[in-house]
Design a binder for these strands. Structure first.
Lengths: 145, 145
DNA sequence: TTAAGTCCTACTAAATCCCTTGGTTATATA
DNA sequence: TATATAACCAAGGGATTTAGTAGGACTTAA
């Protein structure tokens, strides 16, 4: 999603591009983006020149939204929401773990894609990725010559 | 560990007792407590009447200490500390996940066993456990008659 | 018409978590 | 001194999750 936020300002991004930039397998990305599309965080267009784009401005998409869509829960309990972890009742530390889950969710729901794009560490990784893509392309062009 | 904090005020607690109260298998507890002992969070005494006790007052043992001892890390990154998640470099969201790990660790390092013992939800679960143990014992006594 | 792309299902490999089995050693007590 | 109670130890197994593969069907711009 951060890849779309970084590189998606001029039209849709194909998962093949995301795959090569971020070192994530294409098929795995397809599975993740199917879930992201269902939760309407991205929209897709098929055919040549197609790909995915963010369905909202990056300021309005939060990491928690993405985790929720892909993961279905941020849950540190193990006993989960069901709360019958011990013979039909809750275990001793049940509420400790639900508190922690809440903390995690709160932390991630404060971080937008836009705020990540502005981070210096993200920008430097992105710069390296662009550099790498350029040199890869120049190798191809050289080979064509 | 919370079981020791709750019930360990009169001498050591056997893992068999913890096992029956907390519905955790004895062998699994043995593995966990081996790690806790190595990190000097508990001390053990063998033989009849033996068991484990907290090696510090419950005010001075924090959930983060326990997690660290048992788990060796609280780490949300996947790429872990190694930070070479992408072809020898860090991935785009590397620092986001290390930040999250820090947040989790900070949250858990503020929570002592003593503070958990004082929680109402913990006390009510504990009360239920004591009740259950009493009725189990009375069944045994009745059977002896 | 063709190639680029999404879309879909089924399967696999590895890791982790919790647990089981089957022991040994130490020690309090009868 | 015998016995029961407990900690200690090692090897392995089942379930679940995570990340990825494989192989294809459908859409659409050029």
């Amino acid at each position: 999603m951060l890849d779309l936020a970084l590189y998606g300002d001029r039209g849709p991004i194909s998962l093949a591009d995301v795959s090569s930039r971020q070192d994530i397998s294409l098929s795995y990305l397809e599975q993740l983006f199917a879930k992201l599309r269902r939760k309407e965080l991205v929209s897709s267009s098929r055919g040549p020149g197609g790909g995915y784009r963010l369905s909202r401005p990056s300021e309005e998409i939060f990491v928690a939204d993405i985790i929720d869509a892909v993961d279905e829960r941020v849950d540190a309990t193990g006993c989960a929401g069901s709360s019958d972890c011990q013979d039909g009742h809750t275990c001793l530390t049940h509420n400790l773990w639900t508190d922690l889950s809440d903390q995690i969710h709160h932390f991630l729901s404060d971080i937008s894609l836009a705020s990540l794009v502005e981070r210096r560490d993200v920008q430097s990784v992105s710069a390296r990725q662009i550099q790498k893509a350029r040199s890869a392309q120049s190798i191809i062009l050289t080979a064509v010559d």
